[in-house]
């Protein structure tokens, strides 16, 4: 039987179907639960949770702030504390930071933020493809990153509030947890715009908790699941593969995040 992975749909989520399909395609069983299906979500005993992208509660007040206070997050919190893997993608990442699950030095305390993009001469929503790569020894203990080989991974971003912010005194600790960082197509750490598209501290594209079972990431791996998702003009080996190989049926760069979880959950 395939491990059940709960995908939480809040009012305004808009990536739940492709996220569930990405899980299914990688040997898992992704099932979508509405934010108010508490009994069903708690009764089925899922192996992992995914908070998909979108605009939960229309991003009112602050992206992720209202969803973080919903009761279904009590279940996510409980399972995350028990060590089950949790992934937040884009708006899901914002919910994880507003919940205090990431960076999680003191779980439940808000110790980080995904603030508005900060780029020269630009304000607001940003959409495009970026490159990221796993950084540091900590990445090895994160189930979602187990199948990344260290090479730059392209994936799309689409957000207005994607800039990781930490307090000055927390930056050293955050540096150990910022295990996914924006980089150039060649793999050098992004020094600024355009490779670090939102001015994120530490060029962080994804930050995990101290235990390593929770990952909050802004790029969308489910939108890079298949090779045909990759734009043919993308620089680097993935763009080259897209141009020269048959794209249908070939896994894309984002598949590694979900196959990593499948390997962690020992899917045969």
């Amino acid at each position: 039987m395939k491990p059940l992975v709960a995908v939480v749909r809040f009012p305004g989520s808009n990536c739940e179907y492709e996220t569930a399909r990405a899980l299914d395609a990688c040997g898992l069983h992704g099932r979508i639960y509405n934010w108010n299906e508490l009994d069903e979500a708690s009764g089925r005993g899922c192996s992992a949770w995914v908070l998909p992208g979108g605009f939960s509660f229309q991003d009112r007040v602050r992206a992720g702030a209202v969803a973080a206070r919903e009761r279904i997050m009590d279940l996510v919190f409980r399972d995350a504390q028990a060590g089950k893997p949790v992934l937040g993608i884009c708006n899901g990442a914002q919910i994880l930071l507003e919940s205090g699950l990431v960076p999680g030095w003191n779980p439940g305390s808000v110790q980080g933020c995904l603030a508005g993009n900060l780029a020269p001469g630009r304000t607001g929503y940003l959409s495009g493809w970026v490159f990221m790569k796993p950084v540091g020894a900590g990445a090895g203990k994160c189930p979602w990153l187990m199948d990344l080989d260290g090479a730059p991974v392209p994936a799309p971003i689409a957000h207005a509030e994607g800039r990781f912010v930490f307090r000055d005194e927390d930056m050293a600790g955050a540096s150990e947890l910022a295990v996914l960082r924006y980089c150039t197509p060649e793999g050098e750490e992004a020094a600024g715009w355009p490779h670090n598209p939102n001015g994120s501290a530490l060029a962080a594209a994804g930050v995990m908790n101290t235990r390593g079972n929770i990952l909050a990431m802004m790029p969308h791996p489910e939108r890079a699941l298949h090779l045909f998702h990759v734009p043919p003009n993308l620089p680097g080996p993935w763009g080259e593969a897209r141009r020269t190989r048959g794209a249908v049926g070939t896994p894309g760069p984002g598949a590694s995040f979900f196959t990593g979880l499948a390997r962690y959950l020992e899917v045969p």
Binding site: R62, A65, G100, G108, S109, V110, C113, V165, F166, R167
Partner: peptide
């Protein structure tokens, strides 16, 4: 002031 997920709502103390 949103110091925890169970306290305030309107301002994230890290960035605001």
């Amino acid at each position: 002031l949103s110091e925890t997920r169970e306290s305030g709502l309107l301002a994230n103390p890290v960035s605001q």
